[in-house]
């Protein structure tokens, strides 16, 4: 079975996000007021063969823990659907 996986990796709460801060500042100078915060993360999409949804879920979780996110500074979440 082929699955479509969408993964979001975000900096953890409380971790300095200089890119997000820079964007917030830029938006403010462009006169978009009232921005409380901007945080920048990564969005990954992959297509993945797997026996069933549960196995794919375990694999993706492992990928995130091992490589795709650095859990010292980043959180991740993902969705899986049949392609």
């Amino acid at each position: 079975m082929l699955y479509k996986v969408k993964i979001v990796v975000m900096p953890r709460k409380g971790i300095l996000d200089p890119q997000g801060q820079a964007v917030a500042k830029a938006l403010d100078t462009m006169d978009y007021k009232g921005i409380n915060s901007v945080r920048i993360g990564k969005h990954l999409e992959m297509e993945l063969e797997g026996e069933n949804q549960q196995i794919v879920e375990e694999t993706v979780k492992e990928m995130c823990e091992k490589l795709l996110a650095n859990t010292v500074i980043e959180d991740y979440r993902f969705t899986i659907e049949e392609a």
Binding site: I15, L16, P18, Q19, A22, N70, V72, I73
Partner: peptide, 16 residues
């Protein structure tokens, strides 16, 4: 640090 041999992480420089 990524390999866990040293503690902490190295983020983007503050002013990017």
């Amino acid at each position: 640090t990524e390999a866990g041999l040293l503690p902490g992480v190295l983020l983007r420089n503050q002013d990017l």
